[in-house]
Nucleic acid binder design. Structure first.
Length: 840
RNA sequence: GCGGACGUGGCGGAAUGGUAGACGCUGGAGACUUAAAAUCUUCUGCCCAUUGGGCGUGCGGGUUCAAGUCCCGCCGUCCGCACCA
């Protein structure tokens, strides 16, 4: 063995050994307890980036740790392989999306394998292959049969650049999440999954997810957006009394019903559209109302626009009370009923609208009944007691709310209702590179599911991308099929599924992948739910909500007895790097920078000064990426892995730095040198043995809590302690334990060192060391001595020293004597084995 | 606007209400070397100083023998949502 650890040789050697031994193959029939560790599978964009490396290293440490603890571990990897970039590549580079994707997968698989992840490659899957998406089509048919798929003509978010529909979740500040283009509204017939059927369950289930970040649970809760209130109908003044429902509204504040001064409907409301048909000025107003953008800034400053239709409705509690009907730009068509009644006194938005259009502002809630006549100078949204509200007067807000609902229900003009912000999930995409929706449209039979014996519906290969839009639409033959129901001529659905459908069940397919069905229930249930799921917080809503929905849908259909797919969730921080900007405003890659004497940055090519920019997430646009591959060449897998675990807490951002990777590489060599020290020593080193036990406890606890930075710090401490210790049997044992503790993070080093010390077998198969709780405590303790809470001295005493003795020892200290200046202490607090505080 | 998180040395960060700054990075000094790299030793919160002392966890209050940690009020940074009736 050499005096330096050589990753160029060792990495490959051990990766091969693990492969030969099938060390990380997950056996579904193993009698051992199961542990399912999963990282969010990557989109095969081309090459692995540092974010992937960090994500997968964390999961790998946990997977290896669990394995050493005696679990049968499932730690799989696959590819979220459908999506727009492949089609963009097809258009730009004239390559087929499939060829482009599969080539990327090959590259990225090879890159991942270089890092030595303990993955079960036998379960690898790619969502773009028929043996995956065919099963997805079967599941879609199951959902159709269960009534969880609907087809609706609806106004959709249309991305004019990608030429496709976007889900609400994919519209960010009014722009497409991928293209960045301003999203347009368009009416189309679309397939929807009825996620709203599960709104209550999905909300409820969050309560059971104790091992999820609060932040993510809260985001999902807000996204589902439950609110309770009253839904009821207004009758137009021109309609006949009795049961006519002209304008339906929803309110969470029925208690303010006597404060209503107008009714507002959305520009997209049927009544508005009807009026527009006959009156140009209405049509003109609607066009103007819709023109406003939906970006954050635009909404902030957006003027409230209203148009008085001249129509009037009748107040439900008073036949003689008329309210004007306005069309208003702030009323959303797709929330509630697309109409509301305005209570300017107690709603900020209504107040603004009423002041602008000089509508009455009434007070119907006050702190006490005495405040009934207090003028309203701004919308008062706080609860209180009802005033100026007839039979409600004097009731607290909550009672008044209940009373109005009760009366509405008794009289039959309204009902208490729970409203959700969550909408059904539109899954149709006008794209080629996605899972074909297994439906055939027949003029006489309507949409019919593709018979299961005709699955998978495979994407045709002969497509062209020279013009925008969906190539499936213009394929000469693919869509022409016979109706499975009547045999007549019919047309295959040419929309494909949103790629989030692909990622909504891949974790189930990883657990069980039979050829003839999506998964084997019994086998899947052995592994599920995923014990620990790790990924970026950017999926806090979209992917995680869809996957939860999909799992619950399977559960409701009786196909799986798992309600929540991910028991534990961890959202890791990003990998960041400084940015560099040249004098003329170009972003420069770290490779193009040279550090001169005195820390001055210059551009390598020109020698010109470079401005140091903010530390930001690695991105191509800021050119601050560091490609993992050259780093692996230079430092080896373990140094890179170790750096990913060091310093920053995993949930926070990690700044890539040269110093950091150097430090990690240095540690790898330090451990190697220790492992090369002679064995067979005799004698006990109790202090070192204690340190070992404490470190075993600390590292285990840290990994368990995914606090890798702390486990790294504890291992640095142990390493230093061993380096300082004299040779002894305890020291030999300490080195052996150190290797075991380092193994999940730096597996190649650990294996190589393990072998060099002639240990049996591979360290990958070794057991995690245990510790003796009795060894965690020292015989001697350092006791802090404070005067008035300020530290003045310390003393060393045997552990278990009595309160009296500790107090006496403390008072005898010269520094304490000096502090007291001859006076008696007023009070002495003793915390045994920790501290003495003298109150002077 | 609503909701949430965070604020500790030059930097990343540690700290069951009980010795603030573990561990790492950076930097200084020294050893080894013809030299360099590597490695090792040692120092490194700030201020005054000879022993020693004072000040320190965004700011202002409070609770406590004791507060980075708990409570109240500010300030700042970051994240999520977006006219949600």
């Amino acid at each position: 063995m050499t005096d330096r650890f050589d990753p160029a040789v060792a990495d490959r050697r051990w990766q091969q050994r693990w492969e030969e031994a099938q060390s990380f193959r997950a056996d579904s029939n193993s009698p051992k307890p199961k542990s399912y560790v999963l990282e969010m599978f990557p989109y095969p964009s081309g090459r692995i980036h540092m974010g992937h490396v960090r994500n997968y290293t964390m999961g790998d440490v946990l997977a290896r740790f669990r394995r050493m603890q005696g679990f049968e571990v499932l730690h799989p990897m696959g590819w979220d392989a459908f999506g727009m970039p492949a089609e963009n590549a097809a258009m730009e580079k004239k390559v087929h999306p499939g060829a482009w994707t599969r080539e990327n997968i090959a590259t990225m698989r090879r890159q991942l394998q270089r890092i030595g992840f303990a993955l079960d490659w036998s379960r690898e899957l790619a969502t773009c292959e028929p043996d995956y998406y065919g099963h997805e089509q079967a599941l879609f048919l199951d959902l159709m049969e269960a009534g969880l798929v609907t087809r609706k003509e609806s106004e959709v978010n249309w991305d004019p650049v990608d030429m496709t529909v976007l889900a609400n979740e994919q519209v960010i500040d009014g722009r497409g999440w991928r293209s960045g283009a301003v999203v347009e509204r368009k009416k189309l017939s679309q397939w929807f999954l009825k996620i709203t059927d599960f709104a209550e369950e999905l909300l409820d289930g969050l309560g059971s997810l104790d091992n999820w970040p609060d932040k993510v649970r809260l985001m999902q809760e807000n996204w589902i957006g439950k609110s309770q209130g009253l839904q009821f109908c207004f009758r137009l003044a021109t309609s006949m009394p009795g049961g006519t429902c002209d304008i339906e509204v929803f309110t969470t504040r029925p208690d303010t019903i006597f404060g209503a001064s107008f009714v507002a409907i959305s520009p997209g409301h049927p009544i508005a559209e009807e009026l527009a048909a006959g009156r140009p000025e209405v049509a003109e107003f609607i066009a103007r109302a819709r023109a406003g953008g939906t970006s954050a800034a635009e909404i902030e400053t957006a003027e409230k626009l209203g148009f008085d239709t001249g129509l009037e409705v009748v107040h439900p509690f008073d036949d003689n009370w008329r309210l004007p009907v306005w069309i208003a730009n702030f009323v959303l068509m797709d929330y509630g009923t697309g109409a509301l009644y305005g209570v300017p006194g107690h709603d900020i938005r209504d107040y603004e609208f009423a002041r602008k259009y000089r509508l009455p502002v009434l007070r119907v809630v006050a702190d006490t009944t005495a405040g009934a006549s207090a003028p309203v100078t701004e919308a008062d949204t706080a609860p209180g007691v009802a005033v100026n509200s007839r039979f409600l007067d004097g009731m607290p807000t909550s009672d008044a709310t209940a009373e109005v609902i009760r009366r509405a229900e008794t009289a039959g003009w309204g009902t208490g209702k729970t409203q959700y912000r969550l909408r059904d999930w539109g899954v149709s995409r006008q794209r080629y590179w996605g899972t074909p929706i297994p439906v055939i449209h027949c003029d006489s039979c309507g949409p019919v599911g593709v018979p299961r014996d005709q699955l998978p519906v495979v994407l045709p290969d002969d497509v062209s991308f020279d013009i925008p839009g969906n190539p499936l639409d213009r394929h000469p033959t693919w869509s022409k099929v016979d109706c499975p129901s009547c045999g007549g001529p019919a047309r295959r659905e040419t929309d494909t599924l949103d790629t989030f459908v692909d990622s909504s069940w891949y974790f189930i397919r990883f657990a069980s992948q039979p050829g003839n069905q999506p998964f084997d229930r019994a086998e899947a249930e052995k592994w599920l739910p995923v014990g620990q799921y790790i990924g970026g917080v950017e999926h806090a809503i979209l992917h995680l909500l869809y996957a939860r929905f999909w799992t619950r849908a399977l559960e409701r259909m009786g196909k799986l007895s798992v309600k929540e797919p991910f028991e534990g969730l961890f959202t890791q921080g990003m990998v960041t790097h400084e940015t560099y900007e040249s004098a003329d405003g170009r972003w420069l890659n770290p490779d193009e920078i040279e550090i001169r004497e005195g820390g001055v940055l210059v551009e390598r090519a020109t020698g010109a000064n470079v401005r140091r920019g903010r530390v930001e997430k690695m991105s191509k646009s800021k050119k601050n990426t560091v490609d993992p591959e050259p780093i692996l060449d230079r430092y080896g897998a373990d140094a890179v892995r170790w750096f990913m675990l060091s310093d920053s807490p995993p949930e926070r951002d990690l700044e890539w730095s040269e110093g950091g990777i150097e430090g990690a590489a240095r540690f790898v060599q330090r451990v190697w040198r220790l492992a090369q020290s002679p064995t067979g020593n005799e004698g006990e080193d109790k202090a070192l043995a204690r340190k070992v036990h404490r470190t075993v406890a600390a590292v285990g606890e840290a990994i368990e809590g995914l606090q890798f930075n702390k486990s790294v710090a504890a291992l640095y401490e142990l390493t230093s302690a061993i380096e300082r210790a004299q040779p002894s049997a305890s020291r030999d044992e300490a080195i052996r334990t150190l290797l075991l503790l380092v193994a999940p993070g730096a597996p190649h080093l650990a294996e190589e060192a393990w072998a060099s010390r002639s240990e049996d077998g591979m360290i990958a198969d070794a057991g995690w060391p245990s510790f003796d709780p009795a060894m965690l405590i020292d015989d001697e303790v350092t006791i802090a001595v404070q005067v008035n809470g300020k530290l003045r001295d310390t003393l060393v005493a045997p552990r278990g020293t009595s309160r009296e003795d500790a107090e006496a020892l403390a008072l005898a200290l010269p520094k304490i004597q000096a502090q007291l200046g001859g006076n008696d202490p007023r009070k002495v607090i003793v915390v045994p084995d920790r501290l003495v505080n003298i109150v002077a």
